[in-house]
Simulated assay, not measured.
Amino acid sequence: MTMQPAWRIVAATGVAQLLAWGSSYYLLAILARPMAASLQLPPLWVYASFSAALLVAAALGPWVGARIDRHGGRRVLLASNGLFALALLVLALAQDRWTLLAGWLLMGAAMPMGLYDAAFSTMVGFYGAKARRAIVGITLIAGFASTVGWPLTAAIEAHAGWRAACLSWAMLHVTVGAGIHAWLLPSAAAATAHAGGSASAPAEAAGAPPARTLWTLAVVFTASGFVFASMATHLPRVLELSGCTPAVAVAAASLVGVAQVIGRVAEAGWLSRLHPLWTARLSSVLHPLGATLLGLFGAPLAFVFAALHGAGVGIMTIVKGTLPLALFGPAGFGRRAGVLEAPARVAQATAPMVFGVLLDRWGDAALWLSVAAGAIAVAGVFSLRSRG
Rank of each mutant, 00 (worst) to 15 (best):
S224M: 10
M123R: 11
T2N: 12
M231N: 12
F120G: 01
V248T: 15
P236N: 02
A189T: 15
A92M: 01
G225K: 02
F303Q: 13
S198W: 05
T122F: 06
L296P: 05
A249Y: 07
A79K: 07
L271N: 00
V258R: 01
R273K: 06
L18T: 10
G137S: 02
S38D: 11
Q4M: 15
I135D: 00
W362K: 03
A280E: 04
A366D: 06
V258H: 00
L217A: 11
A347Y: 03
T147A: 15
A155S: 08
A85T: 07
W368A: 13
V265F: 05
G329C: 08
R264H: 09
G263I: 04
V148C: 01
P112A: 09
L301H: 14
G312L: 08
A366E: 02
L369F: 12
W45Q: 05
W98V: 11
V265C: 06
G388Q: 06
A266W: 08
Q17Y: 09
L54E: 03
L18D: 01
S283L: 08
A311K: 05
G243N: 14
A164C: 07
Y25V: 12
T322I: 02
L140C: 07
L44E: 14
G388M: 04
P151Q: 04
L286G: 14
L241G: 09
L384C: 11
S224D: 03
L296H: 09
R361N: 05
L239N: 10
W150K: 03
A6V: 04
W150H: 02
K320C: 12
L115F: 04
L294Q: 13
G298M: 10
A302M: 13
A372T: 13
G225D: 01
Q95E: 05
M35T: 08
L78E: 01
Q348C: 09
L89W: 14
F50A: 09
L101K: 13
L28G: 02
G108Y: 05
S23G: 10
D96Q: 06
F221Q: 04
T2H: 12
S51R: 11
A195L: 02
L100F: 11
V357M: 10
A344Q: 10
A252V: 14
A110H: 03
A37Q: 14
V304E: 08
A32E: 05
P343A: 10
F226E: 01
H287D: 04
A195H: 11
A311C: 10
L83N: 12
S272P: 00
S230K: 07
V238E: 09
G380V: 14
H194N: 10
T153Y: 00
T153A: 14
F382K: 04
A232C: 02
S80M: 02
G321D: 00
R264E: 01
A206Q: 10
S242A: 15
P246W: 02
Y25M: 07
G82H: 12
W63T: 15
L31D: 06
Q17S: 12
T139C: 00
P112S: 04
G329E: 01
A365M: 06
V285Q: 00
G380C: 13
G295Y: 14
L384P: 11
L294W: 15
S121R: 08
K130F: 07
G312A: 09
V124I: 11
F333C: 03
V319S: 07
G334A: 11
Q17C: 13
P330E: 07
L255W: 02
